[in-house]
């Protein structure tokens, strides 16, 4: 009774394996040569806009990882002002800073990957924070992930 059923299951398992041996789907993005196009509102590395900042320091206060700190910066023709800087050694990409900024001075970019040679290099003081995350050193082929009924995820060149 048991044995024939087991043999059937063995054959089914082998056939399923064989099916995937000839089937097409693959779920690999050849990162970094290829990179995904990220959806709108993706919580990447935030970018700072100095003009809009009101120095309220809410971003630094809500930051759960203490990654954002307020730096005192000399501004021409004005008094000293406090601007946020970010330490990417600590950032956990929760996006609270962007969401709480009442002036819209912080916004998400779609860049989430940045490599550096030193830890100090990952500390972005207000100046660099305003420049935004450094662009990738080479241009990857961009692909857009699309959910698909047949293969699950399709990466469409875009």
């Amino acid at each position: 009774m048991e044995l024939p059923k087991r043999v059937v299951h063995h054959i089914e398992a082998l056939l399923t394996g064989a099916k995937y041996l000839v089937a097409k789907p693959r779920m690999t993005v050849m990162y970094p040569e290829e990179a995904q196009i990220l959806p709108e509102g993706y919580r990447g590395m935030p970018k700072f806009n100095r003009e809009k900042c009101r120095s309220c320091s809410l971003c630094a206060r809500i930051c759960p990882a203490n990654a954002i700190k307020m730096y005192t910066v000399e501004v021409e023709g004005e008094k000293k002002k406090k601007y946020p800087g970010i330490n990417y050694n600590r950032c956990i990409f929760c996006g609270f800073c962007v969401d709480i900024c009442p002036a819209g001075a912080l916004e998400f970019t779609d860049i989430h990957d940045y490599a550096s040679y030193s830890l100090e290099d990952l500390v972005f003081k207000p100046d660099r924070f305003a420049e935004g995350p450094p662009p990738r050193p080479f241009k990857p082929k961009l692909v857009k992930p699309m959910l698909d009924e047949e293969v699950g995820l399709k990466y469409v060149p875009g």
């Binding site: 056939l15 099916k19 959910l147």
Partner: peptide, 28 residues
């Protein structure tokens, strides 16, 4: 729409899991 596609895909895939892993005599 995306969620519906994903769910249909996973439903189909679960059948393959069943054959290859869940009901694989060695797994059992």
């Amino acid at each position: 729409e995306a969620a519906e596609k994903a769910l249909r895909y996973l439903e189909r895939r679960l059948k393959d899991y069943e054959k290859l892993f869940f009901e694989n005599p060695v797994t059992v």
